[in-house]
């Protein structure tokens, strides 16, 4: 490989640039969230908060004020909607993926193409008719609407990823279990699921992150705090007269905390899932 001095210098400079590009916006958001209102109006702003204040975080998390109640309610909405969407997606994708791998049945390839084909369909393509449907069913402003829509948006990718995980398993293991008298569903739940657990985790994390970030869907379907997730709440700290930047920043930092933790812990799995998801485009 390249061992020249120029090559080394290029690698180091490249590394610094990539580091700055990825980290600066996040770092600066953190700084704003920890700077006092007086510090925020300083010209030029301090690169490091001095003094450090946790007032914005306290205001959001204390539970006392209206601001805090809204934020905590939004956090609860985010967590529950995302969990429901993830759970529903995985529960629906497992049997479907299994059927597409282990059975040949009439129309299977058409069904598979129909399902995976929706991967290329952006969510705004069906947003407005969905809004009319959900309004008709009385489901606007509910967890149900947001969770099922987010689930339908992620189902094709989940199915695609799970299919390749199941296809990679030797069928003999299942045969052995079936010969020992296990039913089909027992085989799936007791033998197959533990074996594809890492793949399942990958799918769950990717669906979780995608649902957590969803904005257009909750913006349209959650008009009130009853179902508004954090992605919507964080856009609301600008009033007609003033913007509370510190509060905005602190809310933003809290909203990106779960994704950041997932990326730090599961990055390897996320990457493998994304790559195999992308090549089916």
């Amino acid at each position: 490989m390249r061992k020249s001095v120029a090559g080394r210098v290029a690698m180091i400079v490249g590394g610094i640039l990539i580091f700055l590009w990825c980290a600066i916006p996040v770092y600066w958001g953190l700084v704003v969230s920890l700077t006092t209102p007086i510090g925020l109006s300083a010209v030029p702003p301090h690169p490091v908060p001095d003094p450090v204040t946790f007032a914005y975080y306290r205001a959001l998390l204390s539970g006392g004020s209206g601001v805090s109640q809204t934020f905590l309610h939004g956090a609860e909405n985010s967590i529950l909607e995302t969990l429901y969407a993830t759970l529903l997606t995985v529960v629906l994708a497992i049997p479907a993926a299994y059927a597409f791998v282990r059975f040949r049945f009439r129309g299977s390839s058409v069904l598979f193409l129909l399902i995976v084909g929706t991967l290329s369909l952006p969510v705004y393509a069906v947003l407005i008719p969905l809004f009319q449907l959900m309004t008709g069913w009385g489901l606007t402003d509910t967890y149900t609407a947001i969770a099922v829509i987010n689930s339908s948006a992620n189902l094709p990718l989940a199915l695609w990823l799970l299919r390749s995980h199941i296809a990679a398993l030797p069928v003999d293991i299942e045969d052995a279990a079936r010969i020992d008298g296990a039913s089909r569903s027992t085989t799936v739940t007791r033998i197959l699921l533990p074996l594809i657990a890492p793949g399942l985790a990958t799918v769950a994390v990717i669906v979780f992150l995608s649902s957590w970030s969803a904005f257009l869907v909750p913006l349209a379907f959650a008009p009130t705090i009853k179902a508004e997730p954090l992605t919507v709440i964080v856009t609301q700290y600008a009033s007609k007269y003033a913007v509370d930047y510190g509060l905005q920043a602190a809310a933003g930092v809290l909203a990106m905390l779960p994704p950041a933790v997932f990326v730090a812990w599961f990055n390897r799995h996320i990457l493998s899932g994304l790559i195999s998801g992308a090549v089916n485009a």
Binding site: P25, V26, M256, P259
Partner: peptide, 30 residues
Amino acid sequence: FLALLMLPWAIPGTVTGLLWSFIYNPVSGL
């Protein structure tokens, strides 16, 4: 570095908008 690279991908779009608004802010922006 791969984890750092994926951070912007994982952050919700509205939060990304907020982060960049703090950079572009005409008065207190970076």
